[in-house]
């Protein structure tokens, strides 16, 4: 009789995405940082091309820097929202592998850990680097963007429950952008009370993430997996 293996979160992720948990975290963290510096480089190049070193100074300020970091994390969150439905490419393979839905559940949990780790890592690196580079978001902004995106992880889970695919993808794209914009405005106008805001958002995120993950997985199993 053949023995049957049980998967770790990382192995389940590897089956679905081709990348282990560690590789995913490193890949997206590096991608996020490179993406940020690439935009900075483009702005600097615009300065050089314009010849008067004016563009950088004109358009680049702390708010732009905060937006860039937020966008990088939002794009990453969007990339992780793939639901692997039966009709999608690979959907039938994933439904046939050992473990069935429990493998899917582990993959999604692995993705959740990856999202949290990437947000923490990218924000942490920017937090540390803000002391060295003047063009990086400030330490307060890094913390705000971090907790806002952790809150966003939970909201994205809830959005995945929406049955209409087009609306779901639209909200996955638009909601993080709206949150980013809101956080940038908040950082700019409520600098003194930002600590309270960070704390409240963090508490909400801690409650929302496991709750939304459980609801999302139950909904998926009932409405998409077992159909």
């Amino acid at each position: 009789m053949q023995k049957c293996k049980t998967f770790t979160l990382s192995q389940a992720m590897q089956i679905y995405t081709g990348k282990s948990l560690v590789r995913t975290v490193i890949f997206y963290t590096v991608k996020g940082i490179i993406g940020y510096f690439f935009v900075i480089l483009v702005l600097l190049l615009l300065d050089v091309i314009s010849g008067n070193f004016y563009v950088y100074g004109e358009f680049f300020n702390e708010s732009v820097s905060n937006i860039l970091l937020g966008v990088e994390l939002s794009v990453m969150l969007f990339m992780f929202q793939r639901t692997y439905e039966k009709e999608d490419s690979g959907g039938k393979f994933f439904r046939s592998v050992t473990g069935g839905f429990s493998t899917y559940q582990k993959m999604k949990t692995g993705i959740l850990f990856s999202e949290i780790l990437i947000i923490a890592l990218v924000s942490g690196i920017f937090f540390a680097a803000s002391a060295i580079f003047p063009f990086m978001p400030g330490t307060g902004a890094c913390l705000t963007i971090c907790v806002i995106h952790l809150f966003d992880v939970g909201v994205m889970n809830f959005i995945s429950i929406i049955p209409k695919r087009e609306i779901k993808y639209f909200l996955w794209m638009i909601f993080p952008v709206l949150l980013d914009a809101g956080s940038v405005v908040l950082i700019a106008i409520a600098e003194e009370k930002i600590g309270l805001f960070q704390m409240i958002t963090a508490i909400f995120a801690i409650i929302l993430i496991p709750l939304s993950q459980k609801i999302m997985l139950n909904h998926y199993q009932k409405n998409y997996w077992n159909t």
Partner: peptide
Amino acid sequence: EVEISMELGFD
């Protein structure tokens, strides 16, 4: 990647 997925997915 197919090879990796298959190797992990089945005994």
